[in-house]
C-alpha cells in the first residue's frame, strides 16, 4: 500500500520536475519575448534575403523587438517578401521612414533584420497631438509604422559571391 514516505518522495519528484521546467522556461528559453505577447505585423520587400529564416529576430541597435513570422515570394514582382511580428510594446515607436537591413551576427552567426529608426517631422508630431491620427484606424496619416504597413527602405543581405564580383569589377576598372 502507498505509504506516506512514498507519497512524499513522489511529491519531491514532481517538485523537481516543476523546478526543471521553470529553469528551462526562465533561464534557458526566456519566455518573455518568444511566445504569447501581443504583436503587430509589418511587411517589407527585399531584393535578396540571404539566409534569413522565419523566427529570425528583428533588432533595433541590438535589442530584439520582434521576429520574422513568414517569408514568401511576391508572385507579381518575383521578389522575396518578409512578414514581421513586432511586439506591441513598441507600437507607435518607429517612424515610417525607418529602414531595414539584413545583417549577420559575427562571422558565422545567424542572420537577422536590423531596423534603423528614421525621423519624424516636427509638424507630424503636432498632427499626432491634435488629430489623434495614430489612435484609431485607418492609420493612413500616422507617421509611425502601424499594423500591416510596408517598409519601403530596405537593404538586402550581403551575398559573398556578389561582393567578390563587385570587387573584381572595380579592380578591372582601375
Amino acid at each position: 500500500m502507498t505509504s506516506r514516505k512514498t507519497e512524499l518522495l513522489v511529491g519531491i519528484f514532481v517538485a523537481l520536475a516543476i523546478a526543471a521546467t521553470l529553469l528551462l522556461a526562465l533561464r534557458v528559453a526566456n519566455q518573455g519575448m518568444a511566445g504569447g505577447g501581443e504583436t503587430y505585423t509589418l511587411t517589407a520587400r527585399f531584393d535578396n534575403i540571404g539566409g534569413l529564416k522565419a523566427r529570425s529576430s528583428v533588432k533595433v541597435g541590438g535589442v530584439i523587438v520582434g521576429r520574422v513570422s513568414r517569408i514568401y515570394l511576391n508572385e507579381r514582382d518575383l521578389v522575396p517578401m518578409v512578414e514581421m511580428e513586432i511586439s506591441t510594446e513598441y507600437a507607435n515607436t518607429f517612424p515610417d521612414t525607418s529602414s531595414l537591413s539584413i545583417l549577420t551576427s559575427g562571422l558565422l552567426g545567424e542572420q537577422f533584420i536590423g531596423l534603423k529608426p528614421g525621423f519624424i517631422f516636427p509638424e507630424d508630431l503636432e498632427m499626432i497631438e491634435e488629430d489623434k491620427v495614430c489612435e484609431t484606424s485607418p492609420y493612413e496619416n500616422c507617421p509611425y509604422l502601424t499594423e500591416g504597413e510596408e517598409i519601403m527602405d530596405t537593404k538586402s543581405a550581403l551575398v559573398l559571391e556578389d561582393l567578390i564580383g563587385q570587387f573584381l569589377f572595380n579592380q578591372g576598372n582601375e
Binding site: L24, R27, A29, N30, Q31, A34, G35
Partner: peptide, 15 residues
C-alpha cells in the same frame, strides 16, 4: 552562456 542561450532557445520550438 545564458543570454545567447536565451536568444536562441525557443519555448515552443525546442522545449
Amino acid at each position: 552562456y545564458w543570454s545567447i542561450m536565451q536568444s536562441t532557445v525557443e519555448w515552443n520550438e525546442d522545449v
